[in-house]
């Protein structure tokens, strides 16, 4: 062997070669202690993806990095913006190849959700994160190319090693685990409602009236938007369309009567997450309330909870009270840009 080749071989060994593995470095991740809000269920964190400071930081960086997209223009954060409680103020979001077909969902309190997407087709955050990268409209990339980009990045190999240990292959599995860890830390429960519940703040008379309308059969919101999450995490057809163009849950179940069923969104931070519904058809809370008050379609697809009465017959003052109560579910500290 020519002796001048030896330094090149050593350099090659030190850089880890071209197999996409992380360089040898100490792995001592720091456990992250999640602060569970009072009254919330005990969260379930996957045993194979515990929360660590390093994993969360890596996930935060990946969430904001357009490196995941084919032309490096779209990140998760492009459609999930912090100032909109990680939703999008646009009706449909702009991907690498056009507009999405559903309104971007806000991201908070995901720890307590058993399924993801409007139609619930993902059962974990790790699985959910795979899809936007591959979606031809959203990011248009494939994960093998993402792996190559992350591997040759000047910083990511070290961050992956710190989060998951040396000699663990950089790739889809670890990337989505990191993103999932970051998303699990997005917890929102610092609201006027929570302080009122704890007895440390008072409602105004209008907010109190709205609370009563919400939590009685007058407006009857509580059956689906149930505390403390303000969602039952189930799927309902709320009468948006007689003949739903978007199959919703039926895409997964192929159940004829599941057409037009979508996941109940949380009403926390609803003040920040316009427009509303799976297709963003309502720009204001007033429009949403009017839909439930008198505007929904009645069919054998419509949820029995809504079919039970023809109209809510709310007057203007009652509608305003409802909106006042809904605004007590806002968490401005979570929503800060």
């Amino acid at each position: 062997m020519k002796y001048w080749l030896l330094p090149l071989l050593l350099l090659g060994a030190c850089s880890g070669g071209d197999k996409g593995t992380t360089p040898a470095s100490p792995h001592n991740p720091t456990p992250y202690a999640l602060d569970v809000p009072a009254g919330f269920p005990i969260p379930e964190i996957p045993a194979d993806n515990p929360l660590t400071i390093e994993g969360i930081e890596l996930g935060r960086l990946l969430f904001a990095d357009p490196i995941l997209s084919v032309d490096s223009t779209v990140a998760c954060a492009s459609c999930h913006l912090r100032e909109s409680a990680f939703a999008d103020a646009r009706r449909f979001s702009k991907g690498v190849n056009g507009l999405t077909s559903r309104n971007s969902m806000p991201l908070f309190n995901l720890l307590w959700s058993p399924s993801f997407f409007w139609d619930g087709r993902s059962a974990s955050l790790e699985d959910q994160a795979i899809h936007p990268v591959q979606n031809p409209i959203e990011m248009g990339e494939d994960w093998s190319t993402v792996t190559a980009k992350l591997t040759r990045h000047p910083t990511y190999p070290r961050l992956f090693a710190q989060a998951f240990g040396a000699n663990k292959p950089i790739g889809q599995k670890l990337a989505v685990q990191a993103i999932a860890q970051f998303e699990r830390t997005l917890v929102s429960a610092d609201t006027k409602y929570d302080r009122w519940l704890a007895g440390t703040e008072e409602f105004t008379p209008e907010e109190e009236r709205g609370f009563l309308l919400f939590h009685t059969e007058q407006a009857d919101c509580f059956h689906c938007h149930v505390a403390p999450l303000f969602t039952d995490n189930q799927f309902h057809n709320n009468g948006l369309d007689l003949d739903p163009a978007d199959p919703g849950l039926a895409r997964q179940t192929e159940g004829r009567l599941d057409r037009g069923k979508f996941k109940t969104p949380s009403l926390r931070n609803i003040e920040y997450t316009a427009p509303y519904m799976h297709d963003g058809r309502f720009q204001t809370l007033q429009e949403v309330i009017e839909h439930y008050n008198s505007g929904f379609h009645r069919s054998n697809l419509t949820d029995p909870l809504m079919l039970i009465r023809p109209e809510l017959n709310l007057d203007l003052k009652e509608k305003q009270s409802l909106i006042s109560f809904l605004k007590t579910l806002s968490d401005p500290r979570f929503n800060r840009p």
Binding site: I42, P114, H215, P228, L229, D232, Q234
Partner: peptide
């Protein structure tokens, strides 16, 4: 406080 009991809450 688990989902199925929370969903059965009587306001």
């Amino acid at each position: 406080s688990v989902e199925h009991f929370n969903n059965m809450a009587w306001p």
